[in-house]
């Protein structure tokens, strides 16, 4: 046996178990989702009925689904943009200024990322508590009684209230990623810019952002996908989709169709739809941000 074949056998034997597990636990279930989305199935019986693409056409006549899609879309648009902006600005301030407390801030801002999502949701439902909550008590204390709304019970503001929670949860995490990135930028660039008389803001725009661009591109995709999955926990705990579905997101709707309405096939169709949408979004954001690297 040559050295080469022995080497490839070794590599194959290292890869095969992992590949097998990957196929079994990732690829097979995913294919199942595609297949089951074509059936009328309660998720319990062993006799699903084939109905072709009807689950998909039904989706667009389902007002609640469309509302939840709109809500998710809004969150996916607002939350990543605001989160990443805040993270970027904070990271830049903390690395470039000579703050003595920068390590404390770094820890404090990162804190939400190590808390469980459920804990965060409970914490924020008490912050938004209509009578004894931190937010409304604060507003009343400074004489802004009129602004004190029942945040999670008012269909006009509930989504924004949830968006704030999502941003608070994620901003620290991306900040730490950006800080690591900024630390990797050569200090000479900043020194040169400073000698040329560039202000801090100009340095931020012309050095920090372009040098971090590749990292930013990745975090945009992370953040969009994060909104999809984290919104499920936050909404389930904080509002249960209420009032009247105005904070329903596609993931909570998928769950309720699958497990409370016993519409597994339909829920799978929603799942496939979300899968396609997030793929498109990821590709789109990748394409749109590509110019920056040239």
């Amino acid at each position: 046996m040559t050295m080469k074949t022995r080497k490839s056998i070794f590599i194959a034997s290292c890869l095969l178990p992992g590949l097998f597990l990957f196929l079994l636990f990732k690829v097979y279930p995913t294919l199942q989702i595609f297949q089951k989305s074509l059936y009328l199935w309660t998720g319990l019986s062993d006799k699903p009925k084939f109905i072709g693409l009807q689950n998909y056409t039904d989706m667009f006549h389902d007002d609640t689904f469309l509302l939840s899609l709109k809500n998710t879309g809004l969150l996916m648009l607002v939350v990543p943009i605001v989160t990443l902006l805040i993270a970027l600005v904070n990271a830049s301030i903390l690395t470039k200024s000579k703050l003595k407390e920068r390590n404390i801030y770094r820890t404090v801002f990162f804190f939400p990322s190590i808390l469980s999502f459920v804990v965060i949701a409970i914490l924020w439902s008490f912050i938004y508590h209509p009578t004894m909550g931190f937010l409304n008590s604060g507003l009343e204390a400074v004489g802004l009684d009129k602004w004190a709304l029942p945040w999670l019970g008012d269909q006009r503001v509930v989504l924004w209230a949830l968006a704030v929670t999502l941003i608070w949860q994620a901003a620290g995490y991306y900040m730490v990623i950006y800080m690591a990135g900024i630390d990797g930028i050569s200090p000479e660039l900043y020194e040169a810019a400073e000698l040329d008389g560039a202000t801090r803001i100009k340095q931020f725009i012309h050095i920090t952002i372009p040098m971090l661009w590749e990292i930013i591109r990745v975090t945009i995709i992370f953040s969009i996908n994060g909104v999809l999955s984290i919104s499920f926990v936050i909404v389930s705990v904080m509002t249960a989709g209420g009032p009247d579905h105005h904070s329903e997101v596609v993931m909570t709707y998928l769950y309720s169709q699958a497990f409370t309405n016993s519409n597994f096939g339909y829920a799978m169709a929603i799942g496939v739809f979300i899968f396609v949408i997030s793929m498109i979004l990821a590709l789109l954001s990748n394409k749109l941000t590509e110019r920056g690297t040239d």
Binding site: Q155, P243, D244, H246, Q257, N261, N263, Y266
Partner: peptide, 22 residues
């Protein structure tokens, strides 16, 4: 079977909006 409606949700959930006069 296969209906998208959950009767109890359809009836009771919108009451939140009635209660907040919307």
């Amino acid at each position: 079977k296969g209906s998208k409606f959950n009767a109890s949700d359809e009836v009771y959930k919108p009451i939140s909006s009635i209660m907040s006069k919307q």
